[in-house]
Design a binder for these strands. Structure first.
Lengths: 141, 141
DNA sequence: CTCGACATTGGACTGCGTCCAATCTAGAGG
DNA sequence: CCTCTAGATTGGACGCAGTCCAATGTCGAG
């Protein structure tokens, strides 16, 4: 995987310090992260990341498909580095989000039988119990 | 379809005025609605519905599977009457949400190949252009 | 180096959803 | 029909995600 500035350049986005910071932070964290989690690292390192900048940059990068928004039900938005296409399992017990490999591996992996619609992405949200909660007997007590 | 109190009784929930009001409002509106949209009708009719009650009742009914939460990306939660299982198409241009019939028609309609996980629901979020936007040429300009 | 287009920033604001403890009520049992 | 209790409702306020705007800073092309 090429580095942050390379990815930005490839997407024809201007390479700015903020965007590199955000991409690096998200890459380091891995997985699907909330805006706050992404902002935490730079903040701890002494250069707090203004909300407006964060959201603006995230939107621009999501727009360019460098990032994508993980569907996991309503609530806080979660971002992840665009990579292997996959889906998510939201645990009803612990609330954790696990990645679920996609059989097809390409977008869109499913077609909607809606005449006239143009689908470019199909993301599946699985709900149930994650392996850990399914194994450990009583979930919540 | 049986009426609100019947549905509540069938789910072994206590039949209270609030819940009936909410179910009726959502049934009348149809589709996937935000909490505000659900509260609007009773409010206009002179009996405003307190936020806390609304959310509490919605949570209880969603828990009992009388209602379900429609996945349509992060943001405001949308509720709908549990009925025929289906998915959603979120239009990238106009933001509208359309129902997409589910081939299987039963939950869960897809399996996740995640060893050990217990899936009870698989909801697909399609993204792209709704028929209207796909037809009307330029989406946003 | 210069310049224009575009990105960043601060600060405040909107609005969803949650929390808590007091009060009320559905519905079972007598 | 009356009583009783678990569970539902309520009000009010809080926390937090995400947005907006206009001024300023910076990338990168020429």
């Amino acid at each position: 995987m090429i580095d942050a500035s390379g990815r930005l350049r490839a997407a024809r986005l201007r390479v700015t310090r903020r965007r590199v910071t955000i991409l690096d932070a998200l890459t380091a964290l891995g997985g699907h992260r909330t805006a706050d989690e992404i902002a935490a690292a730079p903040a701890a390192a002494g250069s707090p990341l203004p909300r407006a900048s964060l959201y603006h940059a995230l939107a621009a990068m999501a727009d360019a498909s460098i990032l994508l928004v993980a569907d996991a039900g309503p609530g806080t938005a979660r971002f992840e580095i665009a990579g292997e296409w996959h889906h998510h399992l939201v645990c009803r017990s612990c609330g954790s989000i696990s990645d679920v490999p996609c059989a097809a591996g390409v977008r869109p992996c499913l077609e909607a039988n809606l005449p006239g619609a143009v689908i470019d992405e199909a993301q599946v949200v699985f709900r149930g119990l994650c392996p850990a909660c399914a194994a450990g007997v009583a979930p919540a007590s």
